[in-house]
Design a protein around this nucleic acid. Structure first.
Lengths: 186, 186
DNA sequence: GACAACATGTAATAGGTTACATGATTTA
DNA sequence: TAAATCATGTAACCTATTACATGTTGTC
């Protein structure tokens, strides 16, 4: 699934500017997709050209005008069709796992830093997911049942990942330290 | 990290042909990286041109000759340097999560199929990881401590993912079924 | 007789990332 | 006064995917 389709998806939840969509990617989508301005803005231009979204300019006082995009009926239809046709793939691209796989070629100090950095990242992800759950549990921005399922699934998976690293980190470092030659202690 | 660097990594574990490297990606690396022939063969050609690997042709009886690649000292050094400089990122790109997020726009039957397909995929992944663990626990192809850590981490994470889906699947489908309008029952 | 596995490669295309370019307002 | 947030966009580059192209051997 490409960024264009994902932008249509965001717009099913309400009109938004490119900047708003980027924030949506950072908050709600961050645990399963990444996209930067460099892909979002061209995507919106292209979608407008194709008639799947419309663009209105909202001038703001003391500020550059925002371009607010809205889904057209054709856009909604295209998104729904695309959704139904999308196979449920789930791919991981992880330099972290690469580093673990070749850790015997890495100084112990670097391995320790790698584990700590990963632990920091994943802790941030857990907080973000919990924030989404809490914010949307009561009030106005209710989650659909499947969205609740989605966030909880991400949460249990991420926590399992974090807990394994946290509880086996020390043992791994000790094992590697005793096994590796002198030059790698640095 | 690009495919070229990963090919160097595979070659630190012994000489191999492009075909061998592809198999390695499918078996050992499949849970954190994907690569096809279309990226592996050009990568090997380029690495040869750069002097990071050498290529010898091994003619086989009644069969097309294999091109076996070997790491040069420069290649090993380049890989180790690249390894130390690589930040431990871990990204997920998941159409499965996208489908969950927009499940309210999907027919229930399709959602059911999506969950089942995902469950099938993840079960295959678990089997593959368990195979790696078992094959390499005793005998000659021993895993390094960090590789054991790597596979076990992938295993606990993947199992947590699978178990959540398996135990909440039915409840989700029921909830969605009662909530969705008539036209989506199909 | 068909299909899977072995074995290598190219070319066109799609797709995204990074860096560049700009500038106002709000918060610490 | 420095940094973060708001706000949009382009261009060059890099990388990978897909489809194409070919042929043998072993297995069901």
């Amino acid at each position: 699934m490409d960024i264009k389709t994902l932008c249509l998806g965001v717009l099913t939840q309400g009109d938004a500017s490119g900047y708003d969509i980027k924030k949506h990617f950072e908050c709600v989508f961050s645990h399963f997709y990444v996209a930067g301005f460099g892909s979002i803005y061209p995507a919106l231009t292209e979608l407008t050209r194709e008639g799947l979204v419309t663009c209105r300019e909202e001038p703001q006082p003391n500020r550059a005008g925002r371009k607010v995009y809205a889904l057209t009926p054709a856009g909604r239809e295209a998104f729904e069709k695309s959704l139904i046709a999308t196979p449920p793939r789930h791919r991981i691209r992880s330099e972290f796992f690469v580093l673990l796989h070749f850790a015997h070629l890495l100084p112990v100090a670097r391995l320790r830093a790698v584990l700590d950095e990963r632990l920091g990242d994943i802790t941030r992800t857990v907080h973000e997911l919990q924030r989404v759950m809490n914010e949307c549990t009561g009030g106005e921005c209710a989650l659909h049942p499947a969205q609740r399922f989605e966030v909880e699934l991400a949460l249990v998976t991420t926590k399992a990942h974090r807990d394994y690293i946290a509880s086996h980190r020390a043992a791994l470092l000790q094992q590697v330290e005793t096994a590796q030659p002198e030059r790698f202690r640095a």
